[in-house]
């Protein structure tokens, strides 16, 4: 008797036209994953935001001005994952069972090569000792270990929630978790329902249908990293700006 576990491919579809830049996803993510706050006066690009909402304008004047908000987290690349190959000590891991790219902060020595290699600028380094105001450690999420100074961290599709869902399933004698048992904090928090999370390998899932739709695209598709985060928009300028197409064909060697 062989029992094979179907391979999952967790991913996300973010509808840019629904995102209004409120930032609830960023706050929900930081609270869920015990992401610390950097001190006052920190220079730009030193924060820790596993998901970061970019505000992008078309640089036009009223009344033609338009703004798009693009939430960018780790794109959980599926092919030639740029960060995995470069880590000298196997602290970046792609789970073959579900495609989640995760950072193992306990093993990371903080060389930051993965950050340099990531085209999405989605990896963050702990430049400071993480600090929480006195007393607030009791308010942290007990399911996620805070990281220490000097290591890299990033979005792992709320590993704590995935783990909890798996444990719950196991305690009930199930080997699989149901789609409604596992949801990322950002998707849950988005008031506009702009973020859809789920299993891209399940063709009937909402996320797979949206990702296959004509309005979907991936950030920097031309790099060939095959991100598992898809974006939707009807606005041409947003799509043209955020996705890139190869200017020439890749050549025979890559086919």
């Amino acid at each position: 008797m062989t029992k094979t576990t179907p391979k999952k491919r967790y991913g996300m579809v973010i509808d840019i036209d629904r995102c209004d830049g409120c930032g609830a996803c960023m706050v929900a993510c930081s609270l869920e994953n015990n992401v610390s706050v950097v001190p006052a006066g920190a220079a730009p690009h030193r924060g820790l935001t596993w998901i970061r909402v970019y505000s992008v304008t078309n640089k036009k004047e009223y009344p033609d001005s338009d703004t798009a908000y693009l939430p960018v987290s780790c794109q959980h690349c599926g092919n030639e994952t740029p960060c995995v190959g470069v880590c000298p000590q196997s602290a970046v891991d792609v789970d073959p069972k579900n495609g989640i790219v995760s950072q193992i902060p306990e093993r990371c020595m903080g060389c930051r090569y993965c950050m340099v290699a990531c085209p999405y600028h989605a990896r963050y380094f702990n430049w400071w000792d993480p600090e929480w105001p006195e007393g607030t450690e009791h308010l942290l999420n007990p399911g996620v270990t805070p990281r220490m100074r000097g290591v890299v961290e990033k979005c792992n599709f709320c590993h704590g929630r995935h783990h909890a869902a798996q444990e719950r399933a196991a305690s009930e004698g199930r080997s699989e978790i149901e789609p409604n048992e596992y949801q990322t904090a950002c998707a849950e928090a988005c008031p506009n329902g702009a973020i859809t999370f789920g299993d891209l390998a399940d063709k009937n899932s909402e996320v797979a249908k949206l990702a296959a739709g004509p309005e979907s695209f991936q950030l920097l598709k031309s790099l060939g990293t095959e991100p598992k985060i898809y974006y939707l928009t009807q606005r041409g300028w947003v799509r043209d700006m955020a996705t890139r197409t190869p200017l020439i064909s890749k050549g025979q060697s890559h086919d």
Binding site: G23, M26, V27, V35, A42, R46, G47, T49, V53, Y54
Partner: peptide, 23 residues
């Protein structure tokens, strides 16, 4: 609207302000 006036805010709200300049 959700960071009203000039009063105090939970530290994590800094993610939207000084950590990213989203606002």
């Amino acid at each position: 609207r959700d960071a009203p006036g000039d009063g105090p805010l939970p530290p994590v709200m800094a993610k939207l302000f000084r950590e990213t300049r989203l606002r």
